[in-house]
């Protein structure tokens, strides 16, 4: 990455530090899910299906997923505010490569997402959530979070660049949010009685993200969920990145 890339990423990170509302909102949303669900239905965590980790470990991956949805990664905040103010056009008139103008804010937002993921993991560890493979589990959860954030960032950026309307970034989170509830979000597969929900959950990529994380935490899922999750979200990250980069050449000035 050249000097312009470093300057643009530095600017993106500095802006998030100066205006942390979006990432803090995502973090607060994640903590809300974690605390409220555990307080409300945490008692069922003693059932065998939840393994030895209890309900907190089971519900923890939802906090990771909702972090990216509610934070800057979901809204690709830096790019959005630049488009809103018109400043993006000025950046566009600079000799910095156009792909860099798109990738740099995505990178800054993903870094922010990773920072808060690490914070969530620390809090979860303090509350007794176990990590089956120690640091490897932490790295695995971070990797899934990274790929998930990149996916959201890329599609959000691509839509904004193509339409020229920063408000359209919300389309991605609006599509993704229902997927959270069409999955094994609150209960393990064994305890879901509605066959249609089970069927839908198999086709829902969020299921693999949840179950893959659960494999790394309390070991309540199989390893193949983790590997399938990696496969799915490496693919979606690459596709969304390509979508965003192609959008850079179609910017509505």
């Amino acid at each position: 990455m050249n000097a312009n890339g470093i300057i643009l990423i530095h600017r993106g990170v500095t802006k998030l530090v100066k205006q942390p509302t979006a990432p803090l909102t995502g973090f607060a949303m994640s903590m809300f899910f974690l605390i409220v669900y555990n307080a409300g239905i945490g008692g069922i965590g003693s059932m065998d299906a939840f393994g030895s980790g209890g309900y907190l470990a089971f519900v923890f991956p939802i906090a990771i997923i909702s972090l990216a949805i509610g934070s800057s990664a979901g809204a690709i905040q830096t790019l959005q505010s630049d488009m809103q103010s018109g400043y993006f056009k000025r950046l566009y008139l600079s000799p910095a490569p156009r792909w860099l103008l798109v990738v740099s804010p995505m990178f800054a937002d993903t870094l922010s997402s990773l920072f808060f993921t690490l914070l969530l993991i620390g809090i979860a560890a303090l509350f007794g959530v176990g990590f089956q493979f120690g640091w490897l589990s932490v790295l695995g959860v971070m990797l899934l979070s990274l790929l998930w954030s990149l996916t959201l960032c890329g599609f959000s950026a691509g839509i904004m660049l193509r339409t020229g309307k920063h408000q359209r970034a919300a389309i991605v989170t609006n599509i993704v949010f229902p997927l959270l509830f069409l999955s094994t979000t609150f209960l393990p597969r064994e305890l879901i009685t509605a066959q249609w929900l089970l069927a839908v959950s198999w086709a829902n990529p969020v299921t693999y993200l949840l179950e893959g994380s659960r494999y790394l935490l309390a070991g309540t899922s199989d390893a193949h969920f983790f590997y399938v999750a990696i496969l799915i979200f490496v693919t979606t990250s690459l596709v969304s990145l390509a979508y965003a980069l192609l959008g850079a050449s179609k910017i509505k000035a």
């Binding site: 300057i7 600017r11 505010s81 103010s85 056009k89 000025r90 950046l91």
Partner: peptide, 22 residues
């Protein structure tokens, strides 16, 4: 249109512009 980053100072905007141009 005034294509300015509203939360940056005048000086910072100018310096950043210069940095983008090498």
């Amino acid at each position: 249109e005034n294509e300015l980053d509203p939360v940056e100072t005048a000086e910072n905007l100018l310096v950043f512009q210069g940095r983008l141009f090498g």
